[in-house]
Structures are given as structure tokens and as C-alpha cells.
């Protein structure tokens, strides 16, 4: 611990009298909720994809736990089934996961307790950065006292990660031949949940504008530049939102 920075001394020194374990359990309890169910829906889809690609149960579970980002998992699954080399597969997966970098970067100042949180904890927690956990964290963490945030999110992701891995394994073993309407409804859960929870996570004008620009630019870039569309609409839409918010702020001052 030590390393008390006087600048942060005023930050709710007594805000977490109940300690690490209490907040960890609170995070675990928060995971019995909608985001976990929605993520399970997505991974059930991966389980049937993995069956078609002839992956083993152990491989499916390892991919779920260690990669923990559905797009990367789907890219690797197709690389494994088509016999692509290690280097080519790594490049393809890395390209599909660049989006995690700005997400991890934006989460850190929200997650850490000033200088007190050791970097290894942040690096370890960053493994769980994926859209679902990120949206959950950006929505809920700002309301918690700073010392509570790492244990709370750790409890949340521990339960989400293990229960999603378990459900993926069960789905793989049962190979459910889901009726199309059930499969379709499961697929629809993800974007609707993301849409609504992002709207409650965006507090600043720049983020609200970014949400709007992303919704419009995403489909446009998808038609014009498939492949690079996510990154393009992220950078272009995000920069436009940032610039416009800055302009509006200056006007007001």
C-alpha cells in the first residue's frame, strides 16, 4: 500500500470501511443480472459454431476464458477450421481486437483509485475488457467510492466469466438445435442491450454525440469499407463528436 499521495488524501478516505471482500461479493451479486444472460446468449451461438468446426470441449472453454471477446473468438475459430498459419491467424485476431485498446484506456481512470491501485491489478482487470463488461463498468463504477471499484468489478467479471464458460460448455455438449425464432431472439438481445445500457452510461455531451455518430456512420462505413468499418466509424465518429462537443462548450463559456 504505502505510496499515499497527498492530492488524493481527501478522496473519501473512510468511504470503504467494509473492505475488499465486501465489495467483491457486491460485484458477484451484481453479476446475477441481465448482462450475464445476454452474454450467455452470444456464447451459445459460439458453442454451435465450435461444434461445426470440430473443436474439443477443452478448446472451447479455454477460448472462452482466455480470449474473452466474441469477435476474436469467432475469427480464431474460422482460422482453426481452415488451417491458417499461426502468424496469419494472430494478425487476423489482432485486427479484430484493436477496438479493445481505446476501451481499456477509457476505463482505467474510472477504475483506479488514484495512485493507490497497483498497475498489475489494472493489467489483470483489463483482460475482462469486452463490450458487455465495459458498458457495465462505465455505467456503475462512477457511483461507487474509488477503493471499491477494483474489487467490485473483479467480483462481477469472476462470476460472469465462469458462468458464461459453464453455459458455453453445456451448450457445446447438448448442441441445442434451437428453433430459428429462439436463435434469432437471442441474437437480437445483444444489440438492444448494448444500445440501452450505453445510453445510460453516456453522461457527457461528447459521448452522447459519439453514440449518435457511431449509429449513423457504422452502417455507412460497413457498406463502403467492409472490414475496416468498425475502426473507421470509431475514429471518425468519435473525433467528430469530440470536436463538436468542444465547440459547443466554448460557445457556452
Amino acid at each position: 500500500m504505502g505510496n499515499r499521495n497527498p492530492v488524493h488524501e481527501h478522496q473519501q478516505e473512510d468511504a470503504a470501511p467494509v473492505g475488499w471482500f465486501h465489495w467483491f461479493v457486491a460485484g458477484v451479486r451484481a453479476a446475477f443480472s441481465l448482462p450475464t444472460v445476454i452474454l450467455m446468449g452470444g456464447f451459445i451461438g459460439f458453442a454451435s459454431l465450435a461444434r461445426e468446426a470440430d473443436l474439443s470441449l477443452l478448446q472451447v472453454v479455454l477460448m472462452t476464458v482466455f480470449i474473452w471477446a466474441l469477435p476474436s473468438i469467432v475469427v480464431l475459430t474460422s482460422a482453426l477450421s481452415t488451417g491458417v498459419g499461426l502468424f496469419a491467424a494472430a494478425i487476423a485476431v489482432a485486427l479484430s481486437s484493436i477496438r479493445l485498446m481505446p476501451m481499456a484506456m477509457a476505463l482505467m481512470p474510472v477504475l483506479r483509485d488514484g495512485h493507490r491501485t497497483p498497475r498489475w491489478q489494472l493489467l489483470a482487470m483489463s483482460h475482462f475488457v469486452a463490450v458487455t463488461a465495459w458498458v457495465f463498468a462505465m455505467r456503475t463504477l462512477p457511483e461507487l467510492p474509488r477503493p471499491a471499484r477494483v474489487p467490485y468489478l473483479a467480483g462481477f467479471v469472476c462470476l460472469v466469466n465462469t458462468s458464461v464458460a459453464l453455459v458455453t460448455a453445456i451448450a457445446y455438449l447438448l448442441v441445442p438445435q434451437l428453433p430459428e425464432i429462439v436463435a434469432g431472439a437471442l441474437v437480437m438481445l445483444t444489440p438492444v442491450y448494448f444500445l440501452l445500457s450505453m445510453l445510460s452510461a453516456t453522461r457527457q455531451v461528447s459521448d452522447q454525440l459519439a453514440m449518435g455518430f457511431g449509429l449513423v456512420l457504422g452502417p455507412l462505413f460497413h457498406l463502403w469499407a467492409p472490414g475496416g468499418d468498425l475502426l473507421l466509424s470509431g475514429i471518425v465518429g468519435g473525433s467528430m463528436a469530440y470536436g463538436l462537443a468542444r465547440l459547443l462548450r466554448r460557445r457556452r463559456v
Binding site: 457504422g218 475514429i235 465518429g237 468519435g238 463528436a241 462537443a245
Partner: peptide, 21 residues
């Protein structure tokens, strides 16, 4: 970081739009 957060938000918004459209 305000800019980075806007980029991450726009990126997720475009994932949402793509999944629906």
C-alpha cells in the same frame, strides 16, 4: 481521454447498428 472515450463509444455504437441492420 475524452477523445478516446468518444472513439470507444462511437465504435460500440457502430457495432450496435451493424448487428441490427
Amino acid at each position: 481521454l475524452t477523445w478516446v472515450r468518444a472513439v470507444a463509444t462511437a465504435l460500440i455504437a457502430s457495432i450496435i447498428a451493424r448487428l441490427i441492420l
